[in-house]
């Protein structure tokens, strides 16, 4: 499969929405993430365990939510580099739910060829669970 075309700074406009999507937060995928991250907390991988801790069910690790947002940025801008991402874990994202990742371009820095993106993850009730900002460096007009 050919590599997707890289997004250039010149292709981005202020206020542009990133294509939103529903990330895979199934129990199987979250278990894969926790294994890769060395996390051994039952609240992430066991609904019953999480309920006993007072949660509505197993929750997606905050750093996985952050990774899901980076994944969305790369789907929107292939070849880009996320140089900084700052996320606030406002409320849990539930495992086996269908959250939505969203983003919008809020600033453009032509000198640095970077854009600022506001980020959110919302649940099925459109309630914000995670919010943040990212600084994304894009390709030059004529990349070498």
């Amino acid at each position: 499969m050919p590599a997707p075309e890289k997004k250039r700074f010149e292709d981005v406009s202020f206020g542009e929405d990133l294509e939103s999507g529903s990330p895979d937060v199934s129990l199987e995928t979250v278990k894969r993430f926790t294994r890769a991250s060395g996390m051994k907390f039952g609240r992430f991988t066991d609904h019953e365990f999480a309920r006993k801790e007072g949660l509505p069910g197993a929750i997606v690790p905050g750093i996985m939510s952050q990774g899901l947002l980076v994944g969305m940025i790369h789907r929107w801008a292939p070849g880009s580099t996320v140089v900084k991402i700052d996320t606030v874990f406002r409320a849990p994202v539930l495992v086996d739910s269908t959250p939505q990742c969203r983003g919008v371009v809020t600033d453009l820095d032509a000198d640095a060829r970077q854009v600022e993106v506001d980020l959110t993850i919302v649940n099925e009730a459109n309630e914000t669970r995670v919010l943040g900002t990212a600084t994304v460096r894009l390709q030059a007009d004529n990349p070498q």
């Binding site: 990330p23 894969r32 993430f33 890769a36 991250s37 996985m64 990774g67 994944g71 969305m72 789907r75």
Partner: peptide
Amino acid sequence: MLDFALACGEVE
């Protein structure tokens, strides 16, 4: 590295 990336829906 791979599992972290794939679980986060990375495509790069």
